[in-house]
Design a protein around this nucleic acid. Sequence first.
DNA 1: GTCTATACTAGGATAGAC
DNA 2: GTCTATCCTAGTATAGAC
Lengths: 208, 208
Amino acid sequence: MAKIRERNRELIIQAASEIFAAQGFAATKTVDIAEQAGLPKANVYYYFKSKKNLYRSVIVSVIEPLLQAATPFYQDDDPATVLEQYIRAKIRVSQQHPSASKVFASEIMHGAPHLPDDIAAQMMEQTRVSSHKIQSWIDRGLMDPVDPHHLLFTIWASTQTYADFDWQISRVTGKDKMTQRDYDIAADQLTRLILKGCGVQATQTSDA
Amino acid sequence: MAKIRERNRELIIQAASEIFAAQGFAATKTVDIAEQAGLPKANVYYYFKSKKNLYRSVIVSVIEPLLQAATPFYQDDDPATVLEQYIRAKIRVSQQHPSASKVFASEIMHGAPHLPDDIAAQMMEQTRVSSHKIQSWIDRGLMDPVDPHHLLFTIWASTQTYADFDWQISRVTGKDKMTQRDYDIAADQLTRLILKGCGVQATQTSDA
DNA sequence: GTCTATACTAGGATAGAC
DNA sequence: GTCTATCCTAGTATAGAC
């Protein structure tokens, strides 16, 4: 039954994402992944051959939502709209895919030794498109003359922090887990900060 | 000779900071630390008893510059001055102590399992003081009514990113290493973004 | 296709010579 | 106080029964 195969691979990847996110690659034991997935350890090796290989599969599986967040840059050309949608999308990723975000952060922080070239290339391409778009807004006088790259770094960092550094956030706010309302406040405030900070003219935006 | 003792401990801690930062705790081999420090492995155990213990010592040793960055909040009461000085101090830490920043980021990301309580307490106390000060500026109408915690999260994230995610930054900018000028640009832009974004009135600031 | 039982090795830790 | 040689556990990986 190929269905079982698919299902088990899915279970293992899901379990692995969480544990890799929580502990990091090296600290993760394949036994723990197997346990979390409710399968014997040998099964993990049967499906993925090696721990490294499984890790690569996890990376590929978590990349999707991260890349997806950049779509606003491809769908619109109004700075206020795009930046707001982008920030909200990035915060949503942190909220809904915290493990993906952490696995990635850890991978990048250690110099991306396992990141497949084509994924790295896709990320670079998105960055290129986004920063060109920002530059074009600047050229058209729609916002202050900021350095597009640094603006992106700021947005990436301050949205991902809600996933990657959740421990710290939880300590500071005194809440075990952020509520939907907390994420909304974070997104609202960051949007206002960035738009106002870059001198972007407010336009009619959807109330997402 | 107690001098040798001091010197060797110093060498080991220095080497360990770099390797823990680059690889993470679990992926780091004590042999590599010993090699980097130019000492035999047993020496590392002689001085630090265990890998975990060495790691804790590293954490304590790297905390100093990180805590130091918050001094502007204790020395002044003008929002433009304090925020600018704080952002510049944080960026300087990322530039001058990238390993410290990474070790910490990694520790926090994994739920701070090794962070000594007193250090965590100091960080919380600093956060408390900083956010109270921000709130007082808001109450006095010196800046927009933002959520102080979220503002701090944004500043932390976007300054630390220059150390923690240097790989990504290097890929995007196409530069192997950021120059002094690059750090200055980053600090200038982030300062302007935050001050303007929070509606802080510009005041006479030192040209640091 | 699944899993139990086992082989193999890396790497943390230490005993004991100098 | 220093370091060489060795121990031993933990954890990856697999052989082979079901």
